[in-house]
């Protein structure tokens, strides 16, 4: 996993609330069996509308998505995170994320930043007024900075450390072999098995 320390890039204002994972990446894209190549499916339905924000020339190459509240609701598809990353987004800012989406994003190195709605609004206005304006998402100092905006954000220490170090979950857990084996040894005999091992 790529480490995330601080990122500066242009922002895309997505003025929609309750953007569910079906909108982020429609179900028919889930049929792929690889982890890449999802960029064309990102917000597929909306991208067919010429006036959709991602279709505007000025926002090409932007890397920070500033979305309305309740971003990432709906099904648990991790493809939503991959689609955002494949498209080039490094961070998503919203006043509220759905739990599963947030968990998925942090595990994949896409930083999801929760800021108060007023701050999100201010960033959206900034990006609308000046699509070339840059936004800095600084995980080291837990701060988002842009012209006229300086806002701290929270992220639990463990998730932050792993993002900063670029550590994936499995390698960390495999260090706990002894504890896992000890737990397995004391599991009751009545616990279900799918096959006899």
């Amino acid at each position: 996993m790529e480490a995330f320390t601080t990122h500066t890039g242009r922002a895309v204002p997505l003025r929609r609330s309750n953007v569910d994972t079906d909108q982020i990446i429609p179900a028919h894209w889930l049929k792929k069996v690889t982890r890449d190549g999802f960029e064309d499916g990102l917000f597929e339905a909306w991208r067919k509308q010429p006036d959709f924000v991602l279709n505007q020339e000025a926002y090409q190459g932007a890397t920070v998505l500033v979305a309305g509240p309740d971003f990432g609701t709906g099904s648990s598809r991790e493809h939503a995170v991959w689609a955002l990353q494949n498209y080039g987004f490094k961070a998503v800012i919203s006043s509220r994320f759905a739990d599963i989406f947030r968990g998925n994003s942090l595990k994949n190195g896409l930083l999801t930043v929760v800021l108060p709605q007023e701050t999100v609004e201010a960033l959206q206005q900034l990006a609308e007024a000046d699509p070339a304006a840059e936004v800095t998402v600084d995980l080291v100092n837990r701060e988002v900075r842009a012209e006229g905006v300086k806002a701290g954000f929270e992220l639990d220490e463990n998730a932050r450390w792993r993002l900063l170090e670029g550590l994936d979950d499995i390698s960390l857990t495999l260090r706990e072999e002894e504890a896992i084996a000890a737990y397995e040894a004391k599991r009751p005999a009545f616990k279900p098995q799918t096959v006899v091992a």
Binding site: S76, V81, G103, K107, N108
Partner: peptide, 10 residues
């Protein structure tokens, strides 16, 4: 509970 694909791998 539902989990994402990275968690499935985990």
């Amino acid at each position: 509970f539902g989990i994402g694909t990275s968690q499935v791998e985990h």
